[in-house]
Simulated assay, not measured.
Amino acid sequence: MDRDVKALAVLLAAAGVAHAAKPAVFEAMVPRPLPRKRELVYASGAAEVACAAMLAHPSTRRWGGYASTVLLAGVFPANVQMTVSAMRSSRAPGWYRAGTIARLPLQLPLVRTALKAARAA
């Protein structure tokens, strides 16, 4: 398995486990209009773990790459919400605000890696 794909699988697995371990942290990222935030956090965490598992196995890597691409696009609004909330908060430190902004374009290399995994499988 390509090093970048392995790193993406590890990242997705860790994020998925974190969703289950600390759901309240992720609930704040769910865009305001969406209901049932806790359930969405658990579902997205499970999807991250499933994508990681599919990326890790050669026979499912193609589907894992495509599923990861869809997942990363689907959770992007949560990343935007996190940035909006940080910018509106008077309590958010500057480093945190900067981090939420920097995180947004970093989604693109993750999507590229997922697509690379799908196409190379």
Results as ranks from 00 to 15, higher is better:
1 M>S: 02
1 M>L: 13
3 R>M: 10
3 R>E: 09
10 V>D: 03
10 V>P: 00
12 L>S: 00
12 L>R: 01
13 A>P: 02
14 A>G: 06
15 A>W: 04
16 G>Q: 01
17 V>N: 00
18 A>W: 02
18 A>R: 00
19 H>E: 03
19 H>F: 02
19 H>S: 01
21 A>W: 13
22 K>T: 05
24 A>F: 06
26 F>P: 02
29 M>K: 14
31 P>L: 11
33 P>W: 00
34 L>R: 10
35 P>S: 14
35 P>L: 06
35 P>C: 05
38 R>I: 13
40 L>A: 02
40 L>Q: 10
42 Y>N: 03
43 A>Y: 03
43 A>W: 01
44 S>Y: 02
46 A>Y: 02
47 A>Q: 06
48 E>H: 00
48 E>V: 02
50 A>F: 03
51 C>H: 09
52 A>T: 04
52 A>P: 00
53 A>N: 05
53 A>K: 04
54 M>V: 08
55 L>Y: 01
60 T>D: 10
60 T>R: 04
60 T>S: 15
60 T>Y: 07
62 R>M: 12
63 W>F: 14
63 W>C: 05
64 G>R: 11
64 G>I: 09
65 G>L: 07
66 Y>T: 03
66 Y>F: 15
67 A>E: 02
70 V>E: 08
70 V>D: 08
72 L>K: 07
73 A>Q: 12
73 A>T: 13
74 G>P: 05
74 G>T: 02
76 F>R: 12
77 P>A: 08
77 P>K: 09
78 A>F: 06
80 V>H: 07
81 Q>Y: 04
81 Q>T: 14
82 M>R: 07
86 A>N: 14
87 M>T: 00
88 R>D: 09
88 R>F: 06
89 S>V: 13
90 S>F: 09
90 S>L: 11
90 S>A: 15
91 R>A: 11
92 A>V: 06
92 A>G: 06
95 W>I: 04
95 W>Q: 13
96 Y>H: 12
97 R>C: 06
98 A>N: 08
98 A>E: 06
98 A>V: 14
99 G>S: 14
100 T>C: 12
100 T>A: 07
102 A>E: 10
103 R>E: 12
105 P>N: 13
105 P>C: 13
105 P>H: 15
105 P>Y: 12
107 Q>F: 14
107 Q>A: 14
108 L>C: 07
109 P>N: 06
112 R>G: 07
113 T>R: 01
113 T>S: 07
115 L>A: 04
118 A>P: 07
119 R>M: 10
120 A>S: 15
120 A>Y: 10
121 A>Q: 06
121 A>C: 08
